[in-house]
């Protein structure tokens, strides 16, 4: 089908995910996977709640191994995260992709979801997607700060006190992890439901027929 050149379906941006975002995304995916799986093994050494993560799902083999993974991958996660967040702020990537984000558009989009009408134009996020990305980035920040409080509750005792002390920081760290895991589950489920969102995460480019107007996709 010839595209309607007078009314291009989308702003003709071929690269919908900038290279920095793509590289950052995959490094982050790798780092966060290690952090979560080793973190589950660390949790199991002294569970906060009445359950444990199946050891087969965890990383590290035993507590010492899990701690080694956790405190090695934290560097990857934090360095990559800092680069990504600084890039997001200063390149305007966050402003363009995640804002404006208003309660009205959120309510509207939520209504659409309830009616089973999902919009997913590649390269443009709907209000719920915007909110999800903003929240998961904030959860990442909370994870790092609560992690620092658990790792160094004496050196960073001011920070730890803000999070309810050492034991409070453990809870915050756990729930922030749970939030990120929840995000990842939905994120992957949507990639499976709409597989054409995946190639652009490698190539940066939207497939030819992907950028359909809202409602048609």
């Amino acid at each position: 089908m010839e595209p309607d050149v007078d009314h291009p379906p989308e702003p003709p941006r071929s690269v919908i995910h900038p290279l920095t975002v793509r590289i950052g995304h995959w490094i982050n995916a790798f780092a966060i996977l290690i952090m979560i799986l080793s973190g589950w093994r660390i949790y199991d050494a002294s569970p906060l709640f009445n359950f444990e993560f199946p050891h087969g799902l965890t990383l590290g083999g035993w507590l010492a191994g899990a701690l080694q993974w956790h405190f090695a991958a934290m560097w990857l996660l934090v360095i990559n995260g800092v680069v990504y967040v600084l890039y997001g702020i200063f390149s305007g990537h966050y402003r363009r992709s995640f804002f404006p984000l208003t309660p009205r558009t959120l309510a509207q989009e939520f209504g659409n979801v309830l009616r089973g009408r999902l919009s997913h134009r590649l390269g443009t996020y709907n209000a719920i997607q915007k909110l999800a990305y903003v929240v998961v980035i904030l959860l990442g920040v909370v994870l790092v700060l609560s992690g620092l409080s658990i790792w160094k509750p004496v050196q960073f005792q001011g920070l730890a006190a803000l999070l309810g002390g050492y034991e409070g920081a453990r809870l915050v760290h756990f729930f922030a992890m749970a939030g990120v895991v929840g995000f990842i589950v939905v994120h992957l489920a949507l990639v499976i439901l709409v597989p054409r969102t995946l190639p652009p995460m490698f190539t940066g480019r939207a497939p030819r027929d992907a950028a359909l107007p809202e409602g048609e996709s």
Partner: peptide, 30 residues
């Protein structure tokens, strides 16, 4: 009317077969 330079038209010139190959490669990579 003169066609504005659109990336979509550029992509449209790529044979579908080749796009399929690229997509398969990506899928394998994944």
């Amino acid at each position: 009317m003169k066609k504005p330079p659109s990336r979509y038209t550029a992509l449209a010139t790529v044979p579908p077969k080749q796009i399929q190959l690229i997509e398969r490669r990506l899928f394998l990579k994944h």
